[in-house]
């Protein structure tokens, strides 16, 4: 090989190990899942024995009322959870971004829920929601109020799992928002203070816009995560009553283990993947648009 050719090859040679790992570790499992979604595959069979059914799994899912209901539940759950967590998490971060005594202790306490294993969170909340011995109903009864059917009524059950998820994951938003806040350029804030901006004005016009790139990524991560939440709900309601809390990942798990339809479960996973991919692309495009607009504004300012 000529030395010029060698030179041209060098970067690819350095990339090769990473590319190989990516192919084995990432593309292979995803490819496997996509392949499986075209099969009528029962867990008692080897994958080579499974019968190909083309797009049947995908088509039948679109007409499957339970799957559509699960999707609706998932969308509802994720939207409410992510919006609330963002508001509360960022709010808390704004409140705690100051030098008061003991603030680091407070911060540590705030992120505790996130560190507890999901199964434990599920069990804990399930006992707290318990109709007769749970702390919530005990308290309500103590105040002379009617007990609430936390997990036994369809609407309440969804609300209950939302509350538990907010409790567990708000700290995640909080800690990232706090980090973003603390790395903001002090000069911009100082300039605003000198110009006499009120605390509220500083938040709306300076802190939030500057934090936006971090917040978008945080929100996206939380969104992806909330689409995949499984254990807490599994323990708390196992999808019930009816299908009211059966989010997609739970439906996928049940399809694979209870109904023993691995092909259908793979097709569902692919639908979930597509939804998440679409969301990610939307976020990405939105970011690009915002960047482009900012760049245009900056350029206009420079030219003026």
């Amino acid at each position: 090989m000529t030395s010029a050719g060698m030179k041209r090859m060098t970067p690819y040679m350095f990339l090769a190990p990473a590319a190989a790992i990516m192919a084995v570790g990432l593309l292979y499992p995803i490819g496997y899942m996509v392949y499986a979604s075209f099969l009528d595959w029962n867990p008692s069979q080897l994958i080579s024995e499974a019968e190909g059914v083309g797009l049947r799994n995908y088509a039948s899912l679109l007409g499957d009322a339970s799957f559509l209901e699960s999707t609706a539940v998932t969308l509802k759950f994720s939207t409410i959870v992510v919006v609330t967590e963002m508001v509360v998490g960022v709010g808390l971060a704004l409140l705690l971004d100051r030098n008061i005594r003991g603030v680091s202790v407070l911060r540590t306490i705030f992120i505790l829920p996130m560190m507890i294993a999901p199964i434990v969170v599920g069990l804990m909340w399930r006992y707290m929601y318990h109709p007769s011995v749970g702390i919530f109903n005990q308290t309500l009864k103590g105040w002379g109020l009617e007990p609430v059917p936390w997990l036994s009524d369809a609407d309440w059950a969804l609300a209950s799992i939302i509350i538990a998820d907010i409790w567990q994951w708000t700290p995640f938003i909080f800690i990232l928002a706090l980090a973003a806040l603390q790395s903001l350029p002090r000069s911009a804030l100082e300039a605003a203070r000198i110009d006499g901006a009120s605390g509220w004005q500083q938040i709306v016009h300076i802190k939030l816009p500057l934090m936006m790139p971090v917040l978008v990524v945080t929100g996206l991560l939380r969104l992806i995560d909330s689409f995949k939440v499984l254990e807490v709900i599994l323990v708390m309601t196992n999808g019930g009553p009816g299908l009211s809390t059966e989010i997609l990942s739970l439906r996928i798990a049940r399809t694979a283990s209870e109904f023993r339809e691995l092909g259908v479960a793979a097709a569902m996973s692919n639908y979930l993947l597509l939804i998440l991919l679409a969301l990610t692309v939307i976020m990405f495009v939105y970011n690009k648009v915002v960047d482009a607009r900012e760049a245009a504004v900056r350029q206009a300012a420079e030219e003026a």
Binding site: N42, S66, S152, A154, G239, P241, G242, E258, F259, R260
Partner: peptide, 20 residues
């Protein structure tokens, strides 16, 4: 073999009868 699926459907539908 298909009982698992029928069983789950029956169980979730009955849960709707009981709760909704």
């Amino acid at each position: 073999p298909v009982w698992g699926k029928i069983n789950a459907d029956l169980g979730t539908t009955l849960s709707k009868v009981l709760t909704e």
